[in-house]
Design a protein around this nucleic acid. Structure first.
Lengths: 150, 150
DNA sequence: GATTATTGCGCAATAA
DNA sequence: ATTATTGCGCAATAAT
């Protein structure tokens, strides 16, 4: 079984005239099977055999046609699968990057804290020097300024 | 998921019998317009009016039908647009996160360097202390382990 | 239960 | 000429 569709430019006019004619299915009679390729389209006159072009009509029953359709359908599926896959990958990448980000943020937090501690030590020492507390024996007074994390 | 439209099993037999019947377009004759909805399907006998079900046949010309189709087509477009938009956003987020990541890496690099400098200063100072400045006792043998940055 | 939202599918146009 | 992409409509179904 098979199916299909058509364009139907959604115009009311079209609506009336074009109709779907979808064999779509069951075995309702068979019909035309020889029609212009792009009918609803621009309206390039129906001049059958133009210049060198074959016929501009397509036999929708020919093996040729069916084979082409079949191959294209495969290609379409393949392409869509690929596309879907890519989207998925992108999504995954987002999560991966988010994790990485968190990791980095954590590291920064740590480094910042470490730095803060060291700086405080320095400050204290500077004070000691300034306040002239360097009789060597008193450094044990380690009066830490109670660093506030951050 | 699931679904069914028909399958077009690509069988040659099928090829011959079903045909596409695509009105698709121009005004080649009009045809059936009353067909079972899901023909290719299971094969649930053609018993027209089963139990309470209306008809199981659809008039593809009725305004009702056309209106439904039209609305669905709109919905489809909308949905696909939305989907596309989302994909785009995801892609954008990837780039945004990548940038953020770089920024964070840079910051880490900076902090690490700063830390390294401070540590070195400390070491030096410690050495000064150790290497003489304060004959107080011998406890000052503070032999630091030579910090390697990082 | 009707209406909208999603999804798979095939066709045709057209890009590659 | 052949495959890859893309927009489009249909129909089934999921979600409201």
């Amino acid at each position: 079984m098979s199916k299909t569709s058509q364009q139907n430019t959604t115009t009311d006019a079209n609506r009336a005239s074009v109709i779907h004619t979808q064999a779509h299915t069951s075995g309702l009679q068979q019909v035309p099977q020889l029609m212009p390729v792009s009918p609803g389209g621009g309206g390039k006159a129906v001049a059958a055999s133009r210049q060198g072009k074959k016929n501009s009509f397509v036999d929708r029953n020919s093996n040729e046609y069916r084979q082409r359709r079949e191959r294209n359908n495969m290609a379409v599926k393949k392409s869509r699968l690929k596309s879907k896959q890519k989207a998925q990958d992108t999504l995954q990448k987002v999560n991966q990057l988010k994790d990485e980000n968190e990791r980095l943020e954590a590291k920064i937090k740590l480094l910042t804290k470490e730095l803060s501690v060291l700086k405080d030590l320095f400050l204290e020492h500077a004070h000691n020097l300034a306040d002239n507390v360097h009789p060597v024996g008193t450094e044990t007074t380690t009066t830490y300024p109670k660093n506030n994390g951050q």
